[in-house]
Simulated assay, not measured.
Amino acid sequence: MDETVCRRVVVGVSSSQGSLTPLHRAAAEARRIEGELWAVLAWEPPGGELGHRSLPCPPRAAECRSSAGERLCLALDAAFGSGGPGVPLRRLVVRGSPGRVLVETGGREDDLLVVGTGSRRWAHRVLGPSVARYCLAHASCPVLAVPPSPLEKELGAVRRSIIWRLPLDTRELTGPVRPRSGKGEAS
């Protein structure tokens, strides 16, 4: 292998909280192999390519791309803060479907493609195509599929409780209560 070619860890980024876990894992892998982190956000026009063309006054592609670039910057800031990931970082905003864009970007055999597995809820699996499954089926490089953080599931339950105005016991969010030991307390 040519040593002048830098190894790359390509990671799919979305504007959802679910992309934070794959971003952190990808940065850790890039540090481990002393490679570059390529953060990729794929975008499509509103309504998809066909729907976009049929709109009477479609938004300009430059505006859509700019908005996607802003979402990528916000996601990276949310994941790493101002300090960055601690490895060389390349940001890519590419027009196209996420699975296809990621497979094409991670097209070298020595690349590592990192994708989130997304929601495991049946509605999401039925209604939307899985980017992770597409990448696993079509990539020419190794693919690391990262499951969602357990915290993400808990936060989703809290959001649903708030939306449906269900009672919310905040003690469940803090973990088990441990008795305090100190002066002046009864044993």
Rank of each mutant, 00 (worst) to 15 (best):
R71V: 00
S140V: 08
I33F: 05
R100C: 12
G107K: 05
V126E: 11
A68N: 04
A137C: 14
S19I: 02
P179C: 06
S187L: 14
C6V: 10
P59W: 07
I162Q: 11
P150A: 14
S15R: 06
P150K: 10
C135N: 04
L55A: 12
A28E: 07
E172P: 08
C141D: 06
R32T: 11
T170F: 06
S16N: 12
R65C: 04
E154Q: 15
A68M: 06
E44I: 09
G106A: 15
E152W: 14
R178G: 10
R165F: 08
E36R: 11
L155K: 14
A62W: 05
P88L: 11
P176T: 07
E49M: 13
R65K: 12
D111F: 02
R31G: 05
E70H: 10
D2Q: 09
D169L: 07
R90Y: 04
G84W: 03
H138L: 12
P150E: 12
M1L: 13
R160D: 13
G81F: 05
R32W: 06
G175R: 06
G83A: 13
W164C: 12
R25A: 09
E152Q: 15
V115P: 00
D169T: 11
L144I: 07
G96T: 08
P179A: 05
R159E: 14
V87E: 03
A132S: 15
A79P: 00
G86Y: 06
G51F: 04
C64M: 06
R133H: 15
V158A: 13
L136T: 08
D111K: 03
P85L: 08
L72A: 03
G99Q: 03
E185N: 09
L20Y: 01
G175D: 08
R8M: 04
L89F: 05
R95W: 03
R100N: 09
G156H: 09
G182Q: 08
A27T: 03
P85Q: 09
E3Y: 11
P59G: 08
P59N: 07
T4K: 11
A39D: 01
A30E: 00
H138W: 11
G69K: 04
W122P: 07
H124T: 12
R159P: 10
T105R: 05
G35T: 04
L76T: 02
V94W: 02
L92C: 07
V11K: 00
L41T: 02
L127H: 11
L92A: 06
V115Y: 02
A139I: 04
L55Q: 15
C73P: 01
R60N: 04
A78R: 15
P176C: 04
T170H: 08
L144P: 00
G48M: 07
L136N: 06
P85K: 05
S19C: 15
I33A: 03
D77R: 14
V94L: 07
S140W: 05
V143G: 02
V143P: 00
A139R: 00
A30R: 00
E154Y: 12
V5Y: 09
V13M: 03
K153E: 15
G128V: 08
G35W: 02
W38N: 01
G99Y: 02
R121F: 12
A39P: 01
V9I: 11
A62E: 09
A186H: 10
S149K: 10
W122N: 13
G128F: 14
E172Y: 07
